[in-house]
């Protein structure tokens, strides 16, 4: 038997999980469809909010409704992809506190990668589709390559942020509520024009709470291209990913396999 865990091996694993997750989703077709529709309706209500807002005020620090549409396209597509292919990201903290990481540790594969791909949030399909449709409406063909590249970096940041937030459970026991709120926080923060923030908020958004790199800067880049910010965004997403991996593995040393955790933080 070949005893490596090559990139190819991980890719095969990834495909197998996509297949299995799809099979599970098909077992529950009805709720899958309902969830997808719900997500799209949810996105539409937010767009109605912005439509009301811009009908009244015209613009906000130079942003118009079309910027919001692009922002929602990028946000939905990247968040949807993160959920579809790395759907376990939102369950890491409960897996830690309930000792469900054991399973992954006993396999000859990268633990974090294996954890992330092994579950899918199929309602991410709704988000992703909605994002693609919005992008098709608002973007010109020339903007697409850049749009997809930025979507990729936003997806990476979403996943990394979730890993960071949920790894708190290694240190504090059951942190699912806090981790979930942090995640909801970053999504919420990313769904507003980042140009309106200032001061400390702006600093946080470009560092530990990187909503700026998820949506604000990418949208700006699509309208006013600038090499410096493109490279910064991509470098940042990679660095953020590395940090989250480091933090996860450092925490893993403290993993208690659900043995002794009795209460919540």
């Amino acid at each position: 038997m070949k005893q490596t865990s090559s990139i190819k091996g991980h890719w095969e694993l990834f495909k197998e999980y996509v297949k299995l997750n799809l099979a599970t989703a098909l077992e529950y077709r009805f709720s899958f469809v309902v969830q997808t529709i719900t997500m799209v309706l949810n996105d539409i209500t937010w767009l109605i909010f912005w439509w009301i807002f811009f009908t009244k005020f015209g613009s906000l620090n130079g942003w118009q409704i079309e910027h919001i549409l692009v922002l929602y396209a990028l946000l939905n597509l990247s968040y949807g992809l993160a959920g579809m292919f790395f759907g376990n990201k939102n369950h890491i903290s409960s897996m830690i506190s309930e000792g469900r990481l054991d399973f992954y540790i006993n396999f000859p594969k990268n633990i974090l990668f294996h954890v992330l791909i092994s579950r899918s949030n199929w309602f991410g399909v709704g988000d992703a589709l909605f994002g693609l449709i919005l992008a098709a409406i608002t973007l010109s063909l020339k903007q697409w390559p850049l749009f997809l590249l930025l979507t990729l970096s936003s997806t990476i940041i979403f996943v990394s942020f979730a890993v960071l937030a949920h790894s708190l459970a290694f240190y504090f026991g059951n942190s699912s509520e806090t981790s979930r709120s942090l995640n909801m926080g970053i999504v919420t923060m990313s769904s507003y024009p980042s140009q309106m923030f200032g001061g400390v908020a702006k600093f946080l958004m470009l560092t530990v709470f990187p909503a700026g790199f998820i949506s604000g800067i990418p949208v700006q880049l699509l309208y006013q291209f600038n090499w410096f910010w493109l490279i910064s965004t991509i470098l940042f997403s990679l660095m953020f990913l590395a940090t989250s991996i480091y933090f996860f593995y450092k925490g893993l040393r403290k993993y208690e396999s659900g043995s002794m955790i009795t209460s919540r933080i």
């Binding site: 906000l60 059951n174 942190s175 509520e177 806090t178 979930r180 709120s181 942090l182 909801m184 926080g185 919420t188 923060m189 507003y192 309106m196 923030f197 200032g198 908020a201 919540r264 933080i265």
Partner: peptide, 22 residues
């Protein structure tokens, strides 16, 4: 469930904070 409480208020704080800026 103090965790729910604290994280809930943090989240609500964040939204209000966003709207202040808006």
């Amino acid at each position: 469930y103090k965790a729910d409480f604290i994280s809930n208020s943090l989240f609500i704080g964040l939204i209000i904070f966003i709207f202040v800026y808006l």
